[in-house]
Design a protein around this nucleic acid. Structure first.
Lengths: 208, 208
DNA sequence: GGGAAAACCGGACTCTCGGTACAGTAAAAA
DNA sequence: TTTTTACTGTACCGAGAGTCCGGTTTTCCC
């Protein structure tokens, strides 16, 4: 797997997406103007519309890139965790620790979740974009559900719980933690929440 | 405590706020136009600006009302829970059950959290509005922290946890659960998350 | 180095939105 | 009845949003 160089067009496209993502996570999609993006990117309006059909197309591209990156990040974290621990439960616990570490390392705190941001403005987007966010959440659930299935084979849970709900909770804690951190301007709250969820997993499968 | 009748002006003001809240939770603040609100409320633009100085003032009033209502709802739930159980831990567990029930009873699912909605568009609001959201979260934390302090006196936790982080987690689970439910259009996921958090509290203070 | 495709530029056009100003009026409260 | 309260009506403005088209430069590839 080698990295192929980006064409000039792809570079510009990524530059626009970077600027758009930052702006959208702070002001929302509607109040992020195309004009401000092209001004910051150093291109003209026509240049923008060469890359994106319309504003909704920008939203779609942004979300697609965000979901792809998430996939890469989580695959990497799981791979690193699995390399350290063969046991499914302890692998998962290590993963959560790595995740919390990753979030602690973000200097200005987590910039925000595009999916969460879209969810409070979903009427702005076309149906296919909304379906993308839903599909993204389902993929998350499936990924963690798979891990949990392997855990319960070896560690019967101390309480009778629905594993899909536990799998959902990963996303819930992250999205809720981001909101908490943003609201109180305290980046450390997010990793704290992840570690508290980790405590829950420990208690649930391992006990005190 | 008796309810005093609303003046006509207060009725209109509330009607505007109702419409604004619903719209803002679906489209975001920026794309909720004053024009659409007055059309739906059956008043004119002048009527709107009689009640609110500008759009930011609308945002402030909306948030203030939301926080006040939250306070009333949670006071009521705690009062009902405390009436059933004197014990702090079991009172808290009953509270969480009542909260989950309340959320299950919302026919179209939870409409959304104004604080969470504002958080992904905070650059749109004046400093005082942002400070209000932060203060709202702090009040939440203080409320739950107080309960947890009373619990630990009687039930030493099975793990060494920071109680502020546990207190934060109530808001985290609710805000994250709302996002989950909205994204997958499945209202039941939110109460499920609350009950899963309840499981965590049980395991933490009571054990399996 | 030449041609084709990719990557943009310039500018114009239409719409909506937030906000202002101000004069007047109906209805409710005192 | 008088005085607030709660609006209506109209007219206006500047800013900015999204869109479109015809042209021009830049880059890539042979």
């Amino acid at each position: 797997m080698h990295i192929q160089p980006l064409t000039k067009g792809e570079q510009t496209r990524h530059r626009i997406l970077d600027l758009a993502e930052k702006a959208i996570l702070q002001k929302g999609f509607a109040s992020t103007s195309i004009e401000e993006l092209i001004a910051a990117a150093g291109i003209t309006k026509s240049g923008f519309f060469y890359h994106f059909r319309d504003k909704n197309d920008l939203a779609r591209a942004l979300l697609a890139r965000y979901l792809e990156r998430d996939e890469v990040i989580f695959n990497d974290l799981f791979a690193r965790a699995d390399a350290l621990h063969e046991d499914p439960l302890h692998g998962f616990l290590v993963f959560l620790k790595l995740l919390a570490d990753l979030m602690s390392d973000l200097p200005n705190g987590h910039p925000g979740c595009v999916v969460a941001s879209y969810c409070y403005q979903d009427q702005l987007f076309s149906r296919d974009v909304r379906e993308m966010t839903a599909e993204g959440v389902r993929i998350w659930r499936a990924r963690f559900r798979q891990r949990l299935d392997r855990i319960v084979e070896k560690y019967p849970p101390k309480l009778d719980v629905d594993l899909d709900t536990v799998a959902h909770m990963v996303a819930v804690v992250i999205d809720g933690g981001i909101i908490l951190s943003k609201n109180l301007s305290e980046p450390r709250y997010l990793p704290q929440q992840v570690l508290m969820f980790r405590n829950f997993i420990r208690l649930l499968f391992l006990g005190p």
